[in-house]
Amino acid sequence: MIAVFWVCAVLSVAGGFGMVFSRKAVHSALWLALTMINLAVLYVSQQAEFLGIVQVVVYTGAVMMLFLFVLMIVGVDSSDSLVETIRGHRLASVAAVLALLVLVLTMINQATQSLALNIVPTGLEGANADEGGNVQGIAKLLFGRYVFAFEVTSALLITAALGAMVLAHRDRLTRVPGQEELSRERLADPATAAGLPAPGVYARHNAVDTPALLPDGSIAENSLPGALVLRGTTHDVREEVAVTRAAELASDPKQAQEEQS
């Protein structure tokens, strides 16, 4: 019991320090997950088995994973700048927190000296055995004494879901064309009926940023992804095309005559 406490306590505090002082946000998330798992072990060691499992499943498993997902969206490489924007802010913060910590620890220490705090805990064997187990005991309170708060918590969850949708779900202004519509559009024009050219069809490249060539040797602009064209990061193949064309004409005089006429 004591060994469990010390191991988990040291690891949790290490996780806490790691979280606060990591440069990269993803590392912070992982340190926090370490802390949470250690806390779960501490819960189980304190006769809160249900809570320990829920901590792993809900907190570490759902909440921390959500953090990691959002970090992936925002940018895995995001790291804080270390430049202080308000001078002395860092020092003042650390001083304030140390003061708070000293205060709380003193109070806890004082409390253990006085008779008001049970140094020997009552323990939960009685409470757990009362209803036939930890889960049953919590169930009795959840659906008995605290049933109103339990029902109102649903309002919280609805708000969260609604809010996430409102802020993050992009509504479409125009209707999405259906498959039949898209098919008809494609077949109506002989240029697209056989399907659009895939990018990079030129014999020397198969990259997405290299345009395809049409049968007459010209470059097919619509074979490139729109985003790359907008950014201007596509591969410019005109020079290559010109060189190869010139070589072709040089090696085949009949074609060159056609070209000239």
Partner: peptide, 8 residues
């Protein structure tokens, strides 16, 4: 909770 012996 463990100190006071109830599950609240």
């Amino acid at each position: 909770s463990r100190m006071h012996g109830n599950l609240d």
